[in-house]
Amino acid sequence: MLYTFIFLSVLLLITLMVAAYETYAERKVAAFMQDRIGPDRAGPFGLFQPLADGVKMFMKEDFVPSTANKKLYFMGPAIAMTTALLTGVVIPWGGTLHFGGEAYSLQGADPGIGILYIFAMVSIGVYGIMLGGWASNNKYALYGAIRAASQMVSYELAMGMSIVALVMTTGTLSLSGIVNGQLDGTWNVFVQPLGVLLFITCAFAECNRAPFDLPECETELVGGYHTEFSSMKLGFYLFAEYVNMFISSAVISSLYFGGYDIPFVDQSGMASNLVVILGTLAFFAKVCFFIFLFMWIRWTLPRFRYDQLMNLGWKKLIPLAILNILITGGYMVLNGQVKL
């Protein structure tokens, strides 16, 4: 009980730290892609930049529009942040450590329906954007909120369908079960190549990241759903986006890229605790790579037009996901993995 509490507190801290440094990484990556230097004033290599940004956010005037719906205006950022932070609980950050006969699992909770829990939290997260955008009583914010809602509902479908094929091959909905199934080196990316692409595309859309960042498309909508937000409320929205990015990278790596598995580590004969710690580090390396992928794509691809976004979601991704399910099922039947 005490251990779980400490573990979750540490997890919360790490999540917030990673999210803070993602903002720094985003600016550095953007600078690198555009042949600039990026932030380098605060501390060595600008490493204290997130701190400076945080202080700036807190010090800004906390402005509330007089026509806003006050209660919902406060609830919006809170919901966005809370649901973003709640998702990390079910992700297996590592194996099980053994100290003095006690087992310490590096996973907050392991419900049998881990994936569905993540989907549930993601689907509640839409309310943060919708309520915040509606409550600020601004037409651009409302457009942003409506775009966010329809985009997330559309891409949730394709995302769920791409997971169905994965669940068929792994036979479990539990995240630790899926990672354990990949520990022999057969990562699901080799089993479900199409599923990976679909899932990553939908994860980008769910995080409202470019090229799917139409809810906050500044060329059309000023600032999108957070146009009227200032100070730390705006900070919470931006921060929730980075937390979501971190969590989706973690989900992608544990579902398809072996989680905390390092290939051939079981043949090296290292102590099991050492393997677990190295595994966690490897997991974070994979997560960092996917965070970098998020940024890489943001600074490479231009934004979609809204109808292109909807066409991609409904007319391409969903049929592809259904095709993936059919192919997977057909292969499993032909291969004798299931009996009809």
Binding site: L116, F119, A120, V122, S123, I124, V126, Y127, M130, L131, W134, I146, A149, S150, M152, V153, E156
Partner: peptide, 14 residues
């Protein structure tokens, strides 16, 4: 949660 809270109520709100 996924179906009622996440999908149907979003449409209501929409």
């Amino acid at each position: 949660i996924i179906v009622y809270t996440g999908a149907i109520m979003v449409l209501f709100l929409y």
